[in-house]
Design a protein around this nucleic acid. Structure first.
Lengths: 356, 356
DNA sequence: AATATAAAAGAGACCGGTCTCTTTGGCTTT
DNA sequence: AAAGCCAAAGAGACCGGTCTCTTTTATATT
């Protein structure tokens, strides 16, 4: 029977104070590291705390200080490499600044996102980093911000929300790759996104609630229009939210008589699925189909051919958002910053001239 | 100037009670959903709460109930697809059961892990899911468990720790693929892991502190011995913790005169890097080198050739650990369960007969 | 109508810290 | 030696909920 230190059933400052023979207030001063205490007393209290295996109760501390030392993070899906990398950026900065992170997945569902915010508010997080599921539905976020809670938006902004925002230059990136495809002679270029609309069809960019994706599609359509290509709205496909759905959409698209000669995939999960369908259908990339994907996932350089991608500074997105938030938490006031991080096209071998 | 509801500077039950004209205790009964109240009073309180935009303070609630509704999760690195998928499994179960998740990365460093546990203990999490960095250094975990905090181990067990544990049948999986390679005539088989030893060299399986990896290496060495291959310890390489290090190790290995004819990669990040080095060196998989990787990452089926992998039920690992923990939290007592989930070899095309 | 019984509401302690305000004690100052 | 001052320690309220215990009110019983 070994039970060395005596089963710590919550030792409190009062217990430590009693053991050290001082008042609760004095013990609290030593343990909490504030106020002034004599060296002799400090040692006595420290010794008593060690002997009793005292563990501070951060919850109780939060009660009076009003700070919980916690930030809430709401992302679409931590399983998606995009978010897991961004979250890594967030947690690194948060830890450095002495905060812990409560993570909630919204599954890109606004209802779940609202519930998440409510939960985090109840847990009294000191700040919030959110990747909003719908730009058009941010009343819950505005309310949180208005009540004075620091809020930073990740990857997706909202003009309706005057808060710190960190996004990538999605429109510019989309314009660049579209221009490149057009100059290679492509007229039938499909854009494929996981975002969905009520009727699962695309009509206009305004239908798309995810800010980053809407800006990309605007860029895509803008360049097409500029190049004299009309009716390109019909080539935007929504609802590729799972590998299965993507498979269905891409297969149908590539088997139709009027099939695209190039596909722009809005994330690496979609890009991967396009690759698989081509293999199954016996189509060659880039001879039969050119492929460009957003997100420089690590595997995109080892396929045959390697995939041309838009490299986003994903870690930096999370890192920057967290830094902005931490600054707010440390009392830095002033205007909300809207930071746009540069993207870069990584040229590999998945695009070529349009087939004749 | 719009400021519809009056800037909620923390509305408390007392405020609601006052507005509704009832006592604090009664208002708390309505708001907290306990005890008995008349319908009339319930409505009055509910209305007052809505009017004042009352938000419960979960922290204060935790003070008295002793439950925080939070579980702490410590993993090596959320950026690694293995962990992000496992964490997804954990968060799904946690949310279902009404818990939120505080996530901390240990970076596979025991010191950081200890700090993480301390932080989580201070935050008074209701339970803990940990993927221990070192099996040999679990005193902090034992102490947490002994103080009555439910603890579940993820992917890595410890005989020294009698707590709920969920792992994969790593040894069996390693035996299977090693046997396959041996039967194809391979004698020079390298095993590559991110785990490290003090001197960055491998001597015996006991050197490896990560349980899952140690079991795999034991399986690997066991089958080799069985097959009459001796001194295979020299073929185990440790310290492939980053793509850069992996690159260095693999390049050196493949450029040596006595180079391996097969490589077993301990995770998909390593597998990917092996692939890249082969491409750079102009070596053909599987003609010049056979490759097997642990973790059926989504990209492994689209490379040329597609990679033969050990498929682990990663989501299920997290899911199961969370379920066990939730059961404990709901008071189910009894023996600690040690669950071993099945793995499966997915045969693709990256292995072949040993070159002559 | 009088009593028993249960339901509804109130009063106030409590959780474990922080923090303000007050008291004590040692040391300087002239 | 008396006054003045500041560091060190103590007393107790407070944060915002929960919960026990007590009192009041409504309903049932004969």
């Amino acid at each position: 029977m070994d039970q060395s230190p005596p089963r710590n059933t919550s030792v409190t400052v009062a217990d430590v104070a009693h053991k050290a023979g001082v008042s609760k207030a004095t013990a609290a001063r030593v343990l909490g590291g504030y106020g002034t205490v004599s060296d002799r007393v400090r040692e006595a209290v420290t010794a008593a705390a060690r002997a009793l295996d005292y563990r501070p109760n951060e919850l109780a501390r939060s009660m009076t200080t009003g700070r919980s030392g916690t930030i809430g993070v709401v992302v679409g899906d931590i399983e998606n490499p995009f978010f897991s990398l961004a979250v890594r950026g967030i947690t690194d900065v948060a830890r450095q600044a002495g905060f812990t992170v409560i993570l909630i997945n919204s599954g890109e569902d606004v209802g779940a996102e609202k519930a998440a915010i409510r939960t985090l508010l109840a847990k009294r997080v000191d700040g919030l980093i959110v990747s909003p599921a719908k730009e058009s539905d941010v009343e819950h976020l505005r309310e949180a911000a208005r009540s004075g809670l620091p809020l930073a938006l990740l990857d997706r902004g909202s003009d309706a929300l005057d808060v710190d925002t960190v996004i990538a230059d999605d429109r510019h990136a989309a314009e660049g790759i579209t221009r490149r495809l057009v100059s290679l002679g492509h007229h039938r270029i499909a854009y494929l996104t996981a975002c969905d609309t009520p009727d699962h069809r695309f009509h206009a960019a305004g239908d798309i609630n995810t800010g980053s994706v809407r800006r990309r599609i605007e860029g895509f359509l803008g360049v097409c229009r500029e190049a004299g290509l009309i009716g390109m709205e019909d080539w935007v496909h929504v609802g590729a939210a799972t590998p299965e759905q993507t498979h269905r959409i891409v297969t149908a698209m590539l088997q139709s008589a009027h099939r695209p000669t190039a596909i722009i995939a809005s994330d690496s999960v979609i890009g991967l699925e396009v690759f698989k369908v081509c293999r199954d259908l016996g189509l060659s990339i880039p001879d039969d189909l050119s492929l460009v994907s957003f997100h420089d996932a690590d595997w995109t350089s080892v396929t045959t051919p390697p995939v041309t991608v838009v490299r986003q500074p994903v870690y930096g997105l999370g890192e920057t958002a967290a830094k902005l938030l931490v600054e707010r938490l440390n009392g830095k006031g002033g205007e909300a910053s809207r930071i746009v991080l540069r993207t870069e096209v990584v040229d590999r071998a998945s695009i070529a001239d349009a087939p004749v």
